[in-house]
Nucleic acid binder design. Structure first.
Lengths: 203, 203
DNA sequence: GTCTATATGCGGATAGAC
DNA sequence: GTCTATCCGCATATAGAC
């Protein structure tokens, strides 16, 4: 009986492997923040070895930069998809597109996290650029007024907060999630709740 | 000539020293996030040794928890201070109270950072509790309607984002800070800009 | 294309002196 | 009340085999 070789990742084109790792990285970075994430966790989530992650992306920072860049792109892609239709209703459709992205693990949290990292030279640059793209899209393509744009983005940031705080249940004397969510997004309560992990749970 | 003793922190009552360290910690945590901050940086910012910080607060996590708890308290204190006066104008006064807190280094960023850490068992608990206090204050003491409350908090989160992104200048092809700030808070532009560090600058 | 082994540096925390 | 010395664990990154 020969010694079985340790299960190793199946060979695959580097481009596909990159894609796979980027998805895993989005989920992990989203759950644990940029600094809180180790390249090893990303590697395990993607089913490859830690050095290979570094090998493919150079550094953890470069990996994160690709992740947030992709996330901002994805966001715009989803917004653009709901452009056709009644302009009166566009804000609502875009809001739905935003919360729908909760199913793509890490996508929203990663964007949220990036907005806290403006102080990092490289990451900050990319984060500001991503935010700019969103802003321009909303103004130019969606045709929002400054006031509408401000309102829309502010609401998105509030959703990020609810997600980040894991405001999904009732925590004793703390404010009830239902109360905040009800006040904020009466029609999205169930969706948001069902897509959030419980507090303390991994995502 | 006797050998000079290494400059050492002057003796001081532990309570005062705690306070001093908490202020330094707020600034550092605010600038570099919870995970990104080392207890050594906090110590140096406070002018004491690293082990002493740990000695006084037990762990880095406990220190951070005290920091955000204090920050949420401070926030409410400032809001409460502007309660008296024309109710029509209360929202604006509270908004001003919020942005005025930018002068207290780290205060706002630390609160923002805490909202991303709901996944951490201990920190998440405290962060949700802090957010709850704010929410209840706005509803019960300030008497905001659910819609007003939602609007007010969402705007606060947007301000946090602008601060976190360091959206303070013109970055080439990126969106101009003036454009976003103008659209968001026409009357606070100068204050916010003047209180933010430039991108890449320490805070 | 992917792994194992490993160097290296850093951060949190402890022990104990003054 | 505060410091110095230091241990230990962990995370990133490199070298090099298969």
């Amino acid at each position: 009986m020969t010694v079985e070789s340790v299960p190793t990742a199946p060979r695959m084109k580097a481009a596909d492997r990159r894609e796979l790792i980027l998805e895993a990285a989005t989920a992990v970075f989203g759950a644990k923040t940029y600094v809180g994430t180790t390249t090893d966790e990303v590697a395990r989530a993607a089913g490859v070895s830690q050095p290979y992650v570094v090998r493919l992306f150079g550094t953890k920072e470069k990996l994160f930069i690709e992740v947030i860049d992709r996330a901002y792109d994805r966001l715009i892609e989803e917004f653009r998809a709901v452009l056709p239709g009644d302009p009166e209703d566009l804000g609502r459709r875009m809001g739905t597109a935003y919360t729908d992205l909760l199913v793509e693990r890490g996508m929203l949290p990663v964007v949220a996290n990036s907005t806290a990292l403006g102080g990092e030279p490289e990451i900050g640059r990319v984060a500001r650029a991503g935010f700019s793209r969103i802003w321009r899209f909303i103004r130019d393509e969606a045709g929002f007024s400054p006031e509408q744009a401000r309102e829309f983005i502010a609401t998105g940031m509030l959703i990020n907060t609810i997600v980040g705080l894991r405001l999904t249940g009732d925590y004793g004397d703390e404010v009830s999630a239902t109360e905040v969510l009800d006040a904020c997004f009466p029609d999205a309560v169930e969706k948001v709740r069902s897509l959030l992990p419980a507090a303390g749970e991994p995502w």
